[in-house]
Amino acid sequence: ARLPRSAVLKKILDSVKDLVKETNWDCNEEGMSMQALDTGRIVLVEVMLREAAFESYACEVPMTLGIDMEPFGKVLRCAGGDEKVTIKASRNDQDHIELVFENEEKERMSAFELKLMDIDGEHMAVPDAEWGAEISMPSSEFKKIVMDLAEIGSDLTIAVSKLGVTFTAQGNNCKGSMVLQPSTAVDKKSEQVAISFTEPLEMTFAAPYMKMITKAAALSSTVTLSLDEACPICVRYEMEDNAGHIKYYLAPKED
């Protein structure tokens, strides 16, 4: 599997490493994917890197690669963001993978080996949901709202109604809310706020977890929040050019 830029892998690692320390990557002809629960079992994260994300991709037999994020991060830090990355896994020797970084400008090549782990992965079945509300907005805006409100209080409430979408946080000494309305005057789709819902709803989530989820803003200019009463929220970042996505399911807080 050969990626044109290592930056994609670096950003994926940054987006999951606070939640997941080790995880199985499932490789098949469609691409590489992973699903993992954080240790607290509050967030489920799913990553899909489709074949389209790669400059070249070949997977003759489906394989599972058990990856420890810490050494993987150390290896990835050795790659420049613009360098190509080739990941090689041998079906005859499933003890490790090889990573090769190529810097075409400097004619430099570096090679690393990463030992694989035997991880008892837990796969969760995510039912197809009919969402009660969907909001899409610039991922940078969502990140700023969450980062700011997480300073105010540890509970983040998201309410969707005719007024728009309201994000509220309440702390011991202060309370704050921000309201977004669907944008009408913005031309660029990536800068638009779109809101759809069937019934008004209001749900509360842990702000520190939501903060971790906004790290994936580096992977996509837009984010989609899907909500339904008494269900985990789905926060989805679609990568450009059908390259794949990262999805987080965060369980709500309830009285």
């Binding site: 629960l37 607290g40 079992r41 509050i42 967030v43 489920l44 837990e122 796969h123 969760m124 079945a125 995510v126 039912p127 509970d155 509360t204 842990a206 269900c231 985990p232 399911y249 369980a251 709500p252 807080k253 309830e254 009285d255």
Partner: peptide, 14 residues
């Protein structure tokens, strides 16, 4: 204070 639910209360193991 609201109590934190777990993902496993909503999704089942495959």
């Amino acid at each position: 204070m609201a109590s934190q639910k777990r993902i496993t209360a909503f999704f089942k193991r495959k």
